[in-house]
């Protein structure tokens, strides 16, 4: 057990699973980097450094640098998964789903169903999400809601290093296609992570903080925004329960509903989308199944219905803040 960042935890998970199972491979753009150049191999180790050093341990036959061809990467991963490998494919930024979504949602996600249950597609797509790095409209989105709505896919978004390692190992061992969303701003966040391998089951929310007055459901980096708000409100005597579902598909509906039954108030903090996003999805769930428990309106705290802006003051205004969460809860409980 030692403190590890999310980046380190993910790297360790990949190495341990590749050592355990020779069918696990990594493929993507610059997962090593340096091929065909005049410098060194493993020049990048992943665009954000997550796969650094893995090629040195497992070789180029299993850590495969590809051309910049997202459709071919996703399709090759799906085809390899259906024929006996366990590929971990990297989609550098989730925004690039635009040039490869067919291979994910029409192909990988549907194989099992449209082929009558006769195949499995154990692939993982690791991708990055999140605004806050001044990377503007095409490198900053949190599009997990779009994948969540596709039957056949599983969607995972860890908020801390312990979860990151255990959920990635579970994703690699899972026999269905899993989309694994890593928030770019969380990579350096550290916590205690066991050195041994472990798997966290999908569909079990983490109750990050227990409280009795109001329930916050938050995803990925928004979990930390929710926690910050909960700490501020605790000093004012408001007891906040913070739930991190960890996976949106499958979704731990029971933990969310139980909490709302207890508190009577729900706030969802979600960076995905103002319309048809996870906030709307959770709100719909609670209205349908726990309507009688609600003692006030459900508050959805999301970015506005705009693309992610570039200029720092604009981007800061775009991302949900702890202050906004606190204000909403104070007003709600007044």
């Amino acid at each position: 057990m030692s403190k590890k960042t999310i980046r380190e935890a993910l790297n360790e998970a990949l190495r341990q699973e590749m050592a355990r199972d020779g069918q696990v491979i990594i493929l993507g753009e610059d997962v090593a980097g340096g091929h065909g150049g005049t410098g060194v191999i493993d020049a990048y180790g992943g665009p954000l450094g997550v796969t650094k050093g893995v090629i040195g341990e497992f070789g180029a036959n299993r850590v495969i640098d590809t051309p910049i061809s997202e459709s071919a990467i996703m399709g090759a991963a799906a085809g390899a998964a259906a024929t006996g490998l366990r590929p971990v494919a990297e989609l550098m930024f989730v925004d690039f789903m635009g040039v490869c979504f067919d291979q994910i949602f029409n192909q990988a996600a549907k194989f099992r169903y449209m082929f009558g249950g006769k195949t499995k597609t154990p692939m993982v797509v690791r991708t990055t999400i999140g605004a806050g790095m001044r990377t503007a409209a095409q490198h900053s989105q949190c599009l997990y809601h779009m994948f969540t709505s596709v039957p056949g896919l599983k969607c995972v978004m860890p908020s801390n290093a312990y979860d990151a390692k255990g959920l990635l190992i579970e994703a690699i061992r899972d026999d269905d296609p899993v989309i694994f969303f890593e928030n770019k701003l969380l990579y350096d966040l550290a916590c205690d992570v066991p050195d041994e391998s472990y798997a966290i089951p999908f569909g079990e929310a983490n109750v990050v903080r227990e409280g009795g007055d109001v329930t916050i459901v938050a995803f990925s980096r928004m979990v930390h925004i929710a926690e910050e708000a909960a700490k501020t409100l605790a000093a004012e005597g408001i007891s906040v329960e913070v739930i991190d579902p960890r996976t949106t598909s499958p979704l731990d509906e029971e933990t969310i509903l139980d909490s709302v039954e207890k508190t009577g108030f729900l706030v969802v903090v979600d960076e995905s989308a103002a319309r048809c996003g996870m906030a709307a999805d959770i709100a719909g769930l609670v209205v349908e199944q726990a309507f009688d428990a609600l003692r006030g309106p459900i508050i959805q705290i999301t970015p506005p219905h705009t693309p992610v802006p570039f200029s720092p003051p604009l981007e800061d205004a775009f991302i949900p803040t702890a202050g906004a969460v606190c204000d909403a809860i104070r007003k709600l409980l007044k």
Partner: peptide
Amino acid sequence: TRELVDDVLKYKRLDG
């Protein structure tokens, strides 16, 4: 406590 349960779960999740 919730943390006690979490700690035991973390142990139980370890490979082996």
